[in-house]
Each structure stands twice: as C-alpha cells, then as structure tokens.
Write a protein that binds this DNA or RNA. Structure first.
Lengths: 347, 347
DNA sequence: CTGTTAGCGCCTTCAT
DNA sequence: ATGAAGGCGCTAACAG
C-alpha cells in the first residue's frame, strides 16, 4: 500500500467508519455515550490505518495531551538512567509521550520552570531526585499541571523515594557491629544544587552518637559526586596521622574510587580497611562491595504509576517509601585486632 | 505578582506590544519583514511575561514544531545515557523540545515507527545505535520527518559513529604486538536486535588473519551484553584445556565481568592473562583496564548538530566518523614466557 | 512593513 | 446515541 503522505485525520476515520466526527472523537477517547458496536467500528478503522489522535490538536481543543515531562539532573549516571528507563516503559505502555528535560545547573532548572508551564506542554511533570521550591511548585500547579517526584526527598506533592536516613544507618551500623570505631564518612554533594539532601549524612552522625562514638571532623570529608572524587577523598583520609579502619561512602560510585585509592596504597580491603556504601550499582557486585541496595527501577515505576493515577483523576499516595537492604559482600570485615576488641565477628 | 492561571497568548502579547497578531508572530519567529524596533518591542514584552509560543498551536497552523524525537535502546547504560545527555544539551540550547522513546524490543521499535509518523509529532528523529530498515526509513521520510543517526553504523541518512573495525583492529593489534597468539574474543550481542553490528568481530578475524594467526573457534565466545555475561563468558574460556593468554572484549562492561572471573580464579591480570576492550567507560580507568577510547559525548553533539542543520534547511555531512584511541593501562602485558614460570607478580 | 482573514485537527456544548 | 457548529492559539497567504 502506498504510504499516504498526508496522515489521516479524525474526519477521515469518521467517514471511513460511517459515523460523525464527534462520535469518532468520543469513541477514540473512551468517552461515554457511544454504542459499543459503533465504538468497536471506529476503533477498528483507526487500527487498520494506524491512526492516532494528534496530541497537538487534541490539547489545543481543550483535551488532554497524553504527554508528560521528565526532568532529570544527570541522565548519564546509572541511577538516573535506570529510573528514567523504568518510567519510560510505564509511560509508553500507557500511550503517553515523554518530553525529557535535562537540568544540570541551576540556570537550566530555572529555564525549565520558566518555559514549560508557560505553554502547558504537558499534563504532568516528574522531577527526578531534585527539589522543587515552593514558588516553582505553585507556579506549575496553578497551570493545572500535575507534579510528581521520584527518587528524591520528601515533598508536598506525591513522591516515591527510599529512606535515606535508614539506609545510612544500616550501613553505619554494619560497620559498628563489626567492631569499628574509627569510621570515616565520604559525603557526596552536588555542587550544582542549592540545597543538598542531608539524610545520608545525618544517618552517620545519629548512628555514631547512639553508639557513643565521638566523630572526629577529620574523618568526614565532602566531595562532589563521582569515582575520581571518591578516590581523592580517600587519599585525604589515608594521609591522616591516624586513618580510619572503616569508611562509609554515600554512594557506590564514590566508593569505587575510594577502593582504588586504598588498593593502590598497598592496603587490602577488607583486611586493612572496610568500606560500605549505598546504592547497589551493578558494578558493586563485580567489585565485591558491601552496600545498601535501593530499588531503583521500582522507584521509577511507582512514580510513573502515580502520574497515571493523577491523570486518571484519582489521588495517588502522597508518599511511597521503598525498602532498602544491606547486601554484605567482601569489602567489610572486623577491624584488625587493635587491642582486645572481641567483637561478634559474624559473617 | 499573582501568576495568571491563564497563560498569555500571542494575541495578548500583540496587544501589549501594540502591534498586530501577525507582526507579533513574525517577530517571535525571527521571520523577515519586521522593523527592528517593532521586533525588539515584541521580544521585550514576551520576555517580561515569560511568554513562549505554543508548539502545539504553532505546528497545527503549519509551522515547525521545534520538537525532535530521540529513539534509544537502553538508556540506563553508560553509552546511551551519555550520548543522550549530550544531545539534550544541544537541543535545549536550540530551544527544541525532546521526545524520548525507549525501544528495548523489536515490538517497541515497531510501535514507534507505527505511531510517531502517523501524527507528525516531531520535526526530526535521532536513532541511537540501532538500525532502521529501509521500509521504516521511507515511511518516516515520506512524512517530511528528518532522520539522523548517532553512535551506530553506516546508513543512508546522516550518521555519526566511530569506525568499529578500526577500533577493534587497534585493540587486537595491541595484543599481537605484545606477543600474544592465543587470543580470545568475547563477542557482545544484543539478543533483541534482529541484525547485529559486525564491525568489532570482523576486526578480530581480519587482524588475526593478517598476522597469520589461525583463530580457534573455541576462543570465540558470544554473549549478551553485560558484566555478568562477560563473567560467564570468561569462565568458559578459562575452562578450556588450553586457555588464551589474552582476551579481546567488545565492550568494557563485558570486560569488567571477565576481569572478575579471572581474579576469582586466582589468576593475575596482566601477568597471567591480558585483556583489552573498547569504549573507555568511566570505570575502566578505575579498573586499570586497557581499552580503545571512543568519544561518546562528541558523537551525541555531532548528531544533534546534524539535526539542527537539517532543521535549518541545510544538508549536513552524510557521514561523520570520530576518531578512537588506544588507552594503555595495566590490563595488558606480554605473555608469560611460555615455559618458565617467572612472573613478576606486582600489584 | 504591518494588519486581516482563513483554516490546521480536534473536543465540546448544543441540538436532534 | 449521534451530528452540527464554534473555537482552541497560531501561521500563512493575502491585502493595504
């Protein structure tokens, strides 16, 4: 069949199905008030001709657009890529088009909130792992656009995330349980973000306090996210007069860098130094890194479902917190018998 | 200022600027035939009110949509995420909206080519690293949608890629130059794709032939992409009666798995066995993996620029091949002196 | 150079 | 349950 250079319009479908324009529209949109037989006929004709309603015209005329926006900071990183991939799957199954916006910097993010709502390009927006300030949120919601968060922090709109504090506590407690006391933390920060999530850091201070272990400020080092940065941070830690026996890193990717530094220094993991982090990146298994697993795909799926619910007119759960789980591999062990620390060396 | 629940329209801007509707339209679109002063005035008013033309209405009325589609197989993987991130940056700077489609399976891909053109949702589509068959291409081009490829193979539409054969040859020659003869290949394939890129495999056979080294079929193993798969493939290789002294892997991620298997077997890299691959994944540096670097961001940027050129009415280069480069780290070394077992076991 | 006038493809009352 | 008519916000001829 010769491909028609001119895509069919709703009018064509209506004619082919032998019904009126309005009826065809109602049928395609699943609107009520169409005889089942009529609807089936229209749907069949549409199917045959690979016809899909034009989202552009549809929304111009006041309908929904079946289009959502995903706003993400660093899509090339595993966490973000995975969560986006999961959401895409859900959205595509629901026949929603996805507009992707990358907001690495403050400026880009400002730009996004400036331009998107201005034209109602989408029915909903999903922000991945970054905060939206109250002004931005109001601006966008006033325009009737729904907002949902994935993989971030608590918020006033529906969001799905993990409990960072809890994950961090699990990691640190694992180290403490092994008998470590000189525990360092490599804090990962995003220099581009005006406000940093604090959960994973708080977890450290809280857990240490509960165990009555004073934290030395030298043992806490902040660094931008990334393996190279993790490597440097670890170098700083190792150059201390009295280095730590264990390290808690905010993220696996930071830990990977730290691991390299440790090994290049001629030290062994976990014999000389233990390391634990959060995420369970695919490379963690290959590196034998003990870490706290977080369900990434699941967060994306849940967030996408929230959008579907919202678009469906229902109210999704305000907060969804997915469970994390400690995965013990071989990067952690009791500290070298310092003096007489008879820790319960399970594992 | 109280955000207007009703976004301004072109008519509003025209009125505020004291000009006619058409003039405002022309001014905003950079169309010719507008007095500089008038244009400035319109632009100023638009700026003040954060007004942006509605792509939906614009395209409905026959204008461009300033919207492009990116079609990508596995966005959660480093290569794809990075290339998409690069393209996004370029597109956002050009004020183009990006529609993202994930096509993991054949079915999804079919779906894409079925529905997208049907409604002219975009001005152009970029396919990332997967082939488009002739029928699909024609279908889409007949509808006036431009098509461009990134990170894939040669094609009839503008494409940017690396020379896979050349990259592979570089890798294999490195091994041969070191003195290896029992060289294995771990071939990565995508079970979902009907047709596999052959460049990296051909490179192996060609280079071996040129060096007059017969390739034993046992030393070639195919596996789906992925670290775990690479690990298994390596296990197969190691269980051979006469294992290879060097391995050429199609991709770093596969090599990572292979590395683990080797080390878990108690063997040392590169003393006992050398390994080289292609990509230069960020973890390659951390793993001391010798690899052939390919410029990923650059491929994305070039492809995006091609789209801009096309949208601008010009013809971009039909083929852009970006250079690759061997990065020698510490996963490759001359083979152990065949008989004597005098390994300098550094590390 | 600038304003006026048709639609673009669709959804929505409003009738029938 | 269905058809007819108006208009969504904008661009592309046309006039002036």
């Amino acid at each position: 069949m010769p491909p028609d250079a001119h895509p069919l319009t709703l009018a064509d479908i209506a004619r082919l199905a032998g019904v009126g324009l309005a009826t065809a529209s109602r049928a395609l949109n699943g609107a009520p008030g169409v005889a089942p037989a009529t609807r089936a006929k229209v749907l069949a004709v549409a199917e045959e001709n690979a016809f899909v309603v034009s989202p552009d015209a549809s929304r111009l005329a006041g309908g929904a657009q079946r289009r959502v926006a995903i706003v993400v900071p660093h899509i090339s990183r595993w966490f973000f890529g995975t969560i986006v991939e999961a959401m895409l799957t859900v959205f595509q199954n629901a026949d929603l088009d996805v507009l992707l916006y990358h907001v690495g910097s403050e400026a880009e993010r400002h730009d996004f909130f400036e331009k998107l709502p201005a034209r109602r390009k989408v029915d909903a927006v999903v922000v991945v792992a970054f905060p939206v300030d109250e002004q931005e949120r109001q601006r966008i919601e006033l325009l009737g656009v729904q907002i949902v968060a994935a993989g971030g922090q608590h918020a006033v709109y529906p969001h799905v995330c993990i409990d960072d504090v809890n994950a961090g506590r699990t990691a640190v407690n694992h180290l403490i349980g092994l008998g470590h006391r000189r525990i360092a933390m490599i804090e990962a920060v995003d220099p581009e973000q005006p406000v940093q999530p604090r959960g994973r850091s708080m977890a450290f201070y809280d857990t240490m306090a509960e165990a009555d272990i004073p934290v030395e400020q030298d043992l806490v080092v902040s660094t931008p996210w990334g393996p190279e940065q993790g490597a440097e941070a670890m170098a700083t830690l190792l150059s201390l007069p009295n280095p730590p026996t264990a390290v808690y890193a905010h993220s696996d990717e930071v830990a990977f860098g730290a691991l390299r530094t440790i090994r290049r220094s001629g030290l062994f993991v976990p014999e000389d130094i233990s390391i634990v982090s959060i995420d369970d990146h695919p490379m963690a298994a290959l590196t034998d890194l003990t870490t706290v697993h977080q369900p990434v795909r699941e967060q994306g799926i849940a967030a996408a479902r929230n959008v579907l619910t919202l678009l469906n007119g229902d109210r999704p759960d305000q907060a969804t917190t997915l469970p994390t789980q400690l995965i013990v591999r071989h990067s952690t062990a009791p500290p070298r018998a310092a003096t007489a620390k008879t820790g319960p060396a399970r594992r």
